[in-house]
């Protein structure tokens, strides 16, 4: 298990670049770029542009989201920003405000 975990008590102001999975449980401000999957867990706060592979959101994201794969907004997720992805799901109970741009 060689992934990056931003724990619940942690705040990162700045830029995160990763070649592997990133799990956010804490707070990230700035920019989050991953080559692989990104998971924003419940209670996590992301005030950043997020780009990466498959993106699962159960926490809060304020910023634009770009994914090469899919974006899943799970119940309890709160997203303010534009989403650009090949596929997107918005579950019942997810809050979302922004544009959706899918490859058509």
């Amino acid at each position: 298990m060689a992934s990056t975990v931003i724990g619940a008590g942690i705040t990162i102001d700045g830029e995160i670049t990763s070649d592997e999975d990133v799990v956010v449980q804490g707070t990230v401000r700035g920019k989050l770029t991953a080559r692989d999957g990104v998971t924003v867990e419940p209670g996590a706060v992301v005030e950043a542009d997020v780009s990466g592979g498959p993106l699962t959101v159960a926490g809060s994201i304020t910023g634009n989201i770009t994914s090469t794969d899919r974006v899943d907004l799970q119940p309890g997720a709160k997203v303010i920003g534009n989403v650009k992805a090949a596929r997107i799901t918005i579950s019942d109970g997810a809050q979302f405000k922004g544009n959706v741009d899918m490859d058509v």
Binding site: S3, G7, I10, D13, E20, G26
Partner: peptide, 21 residues
């Protein structure tokens, strides 16, 4: 592991990391 943060092998963080973990 809520109170542990791990910056993985392939990860670069530029900026400031703070918190109680």
């Amino acid at each position: 592991n809520g109170d542990v943060a791990t910056i993985g092998r392939g990860t670069v963080v530029r900026g400031r990391i703070t918190g109680a973990a």
